[in-house]
């Protein structure tokens, strides 16, 4: 008897094989995402996946869900419009570090500030994969990229800290090695009423690892295993990552704060009284 992989139902079989390189960490994160969906028993018809542009931006295209592959950096405002227009939808943004923190950085902090009820999964491989390995806002100091051939000297973003300080209600970080923790985290975040953010550190063997002589995908997994420290509730300002340095992982933030729509409904009800009909009911 041949058992079907339970993950298959979540993938567009007619689009496989995918475009990702051997050893790339993006596929691993997708696997965790599908497991989280499977376990969370959410109505899959209501789960929307929205991506920007880049290697991770291609995730939307492989998921057997309503999926939207938008413009570079703009997955979050697209998701914002979608969620507000139909609050019944569960909207997940799945994109890379360049897409979310460089070109889309402004949208990221504002969606967190407004507490728009979406889950943002950022696969952070410290480089632009699709365009050939350029420096991103999360590339470490000293790292070689095609546009930093002598090494990067810019201070990188600490994304959990950025999300936390902008107002996200759920912030976690895992690596592609922490598959169980990641799946659990996604499942948990899917239930949050507000802006949730999960950063997944993942290998880009083709460009980032090779250029920085960090070995292949397996070597990177060994690095994640050896150098990750789980520190739940860590202060996010202390979780920055340096080149070959320690990676603090865990669930850093899990709090309650009224979402955009909740705040809107409460506020309008208060000031407009009966002339306001609660939105989204």
């Amino acid at each position: 008897m041949i058992l079907e992989n339970p993950v298959n139902q979540f993938l567009r079989q007619d689009r496989l094989p995918h475009i990702w390189c051997p050893g790339c960490g993006i596929g691993t994160t997708v696997n965790c995402f599908t497991r989280a969906l499977l376990e969370s028993e959410t109505d899959l018809n209501k789960v929307m996946i929205v991506s920007g542009i880049g290697c991770t931006g291609r995730v939307a295209g492989y998921m057997n869900l309503d999926s939207f592959h938008t413009t570079h950096g703009r997955a979050i405002p697209f998701a914002t419009g979608m969620k507000l227009a139909n609050p019944d939808l569960k909207v997940v943004v799945y994109s890379g570090d360049g897409d979310i923190s460089a070109i889309g950085g402004n949208h990221f902090i504002h969606a967190a500030r407004r507490n728009i009820e979406i889950l943002v999964i950022c696969v952070d491989n410290f480089t632009y994969g699709m365009t050939g390995g350029q420096v991103t806002p999360t590339s470490h100091i000293g790292a070689i990229n095609s546009t930093t051939p002598y090494g990067n000297f810019e201070q990188p973003f600490n994304l959990p800290f950025l999300a936390d300080s902008s107002g996200a209600v759920y912030v976690a970080r895992w690596t592609a090695f922490h598959v169980h923790q990641l799946a659990r985290s996604i499942k948990e975040a899917l239930q949050k009423k507000g802006f949730s953010f999960i950063e997944v550190i993942a290998p880009c063997p083709t460009l980032y690892l090779r250029r920085n002589r960090l070995g292949d995908g397996i070597d990177e997994m060994k690095y994640y295993k050896e150098k990750s420290v789980v520190k739940n509730n860590a202060d996010t300002k202390d979780v920055g990552i340096s080149f070959k340095g320690e990676i603090v992982v865990g669930k850093f933030v899990d709090r309650e704060r009224p979402s955009f729509l909740e705040s809107m409904n409460v506020h309008y009800k208060k000031v407009l009284g009966d002339s306001y009909k609660t939105y989204g009911e």
């Binding site: 969620k83 507000l84 227009a85 139909n86 949208h107």
Partner: peptide, 27 residues
């Protein structure tokens, strides 16, 4: 707010012009 519509002032025009795409697909 009085007729069941949603208005959001976005962070810029780029965001505004794609938020409406998301809303349009949501119906």
């Amino acid at each position: 707010p009085l007729i069941g519509g949603i208005f959001i002032q976005m962070e810029d025009e780029i965001a505004s012009s794609i938020a409406i795409a998301g809303a349009s697909w949501a119906g």
